[in-house]
Write a protein that binds this DNA or RNA. Structure first.
Length: 276
DNA sequence: AGACCCCTGGAC
DNA sequence: GTCCAGGGGTCT
């Protein structure tokens, strides 16, 4: 569930703690994190200095040099945090990176969906998930956003979830953006007027910015780098509120499936639009 | 476009 | 015990 606002919050939290730190050891590396060609991960990391912590979509990077990075994808239950060196801080820790100030960065993931890989810039650009990733939703302008959706087949929610269309949106922020734009999630993108798409662009940026300000949304597992819960779940209008009254019109929220994902919406505020 | 898979734990 | 949470890969 870490989506763009959660990954951004973690990156902001880790940046001052990791920048200019040198990796001194990898005391723990779970076998399932070691992909083919990554068997020498430990050798590749020890002695390297972390130059910066950055984010692209839902990926969090430790930038080691202009041409080498570690990429984390937290998927559903991944967490990153800091601990004193020399101890496993919690259950389900799959990677521990010791640093030169007696601290350690840990990667914890109950469900083991998350990934951690070392990349050269060349390898990164050869990774389709990265190279084909769409623009950052907080950087894209309304004009370009509109052009990217124009002529695309498929339902609007499916397109928002598609990382090749726009990067970093997951189930929570897709539903919340669509509610705020008063668009039914199953609407064919081709049926949306230009002004409706502009409204969606505005809603998406508002929701993401507000969520970052709130430190992200903690449904179950997500925590900031400092181990704190985010608070944006308290501002949800539709996500996880099935059958509850709409906060705007009091009609009962409905639940459906779009793009294989549970989808909450208000039938009053988000009326269906026929394909045209 | 949809089904299944990865994995674990909480809800029922 | 069964169902469900959902990001992304893979296969049909």
């Amino acid at each position: 569930m870490p989506e763009l606002p959660e990954v951004e919050t973690i990156a902001q939290g880790l940046r001052p703690l990791l920048t200019h730190r040198t990796i001194t050891g990898i005391p723990h590396l779970a076998p399932h994190l070691v992909r083919q060609g990554q068997t020498s991960l430990t050798e590749k990391l020890i002695g390297q200095q972390i130059q910066d912590v950055s984010r692209r979509g839902k990926l969090l990077f430790l930038d080691l040099s202009p041409t080498e990075r570690i990429a984390f994808h937290l998927r559903m239950t991944g967490r990153l945090g800091m601990a004193p060196a020399g101890q496993l801080p919690a259950a389900h820790v799959h990677l521990l990176i010791n640093l030169d100030n007696q601290s350690a960065l840990y990667f914890q993931d109950q469900r083991k969906f998350g990934t951690c890989r070392h990349f050269t810039e060349q390898e990164l650009n050869a990774w389709p998930f990265y190279s084909r990733m769409g623009p950052e939703p907080l950087s894209i302008g309304a004009e370009e956003f509109s052009e990217r959706l124009a002529g695309k087949r498929g339902r609007i929610k499916a397109l928002l979830l598609n990382q090749e269309v726009i990067a970093g949106i997951g189930n929570i922020y897709a539903d919340e953006s669509l509610f705020r734009a008063a668009i039914h999630p199953a609407t064919p993108a081709a049926a949306l007027s230009r002004s409706r798409i502009t409204k969606l662009h505005h809603a998406m940026q508002d929701v993401l910015r507000d969520a970052i300000t709130a430190g992200g949304s903690s449904i179950r597992d997500y925590r900031t780098a400092a181990g704190l819960v985010g608070t944006f779940q308290n501002a949800f209008q539709v996500y996880g509120r099935k059958h509850q009254p709409c906060l705007r019109c009091a009609e009962a929220l409905r639940i459906t499936k779009v793009a294989g994902r549970t989808t909450c919406y208000c039938p009053g505020c988000q009326p269906e639009i026929e394909a045209g």
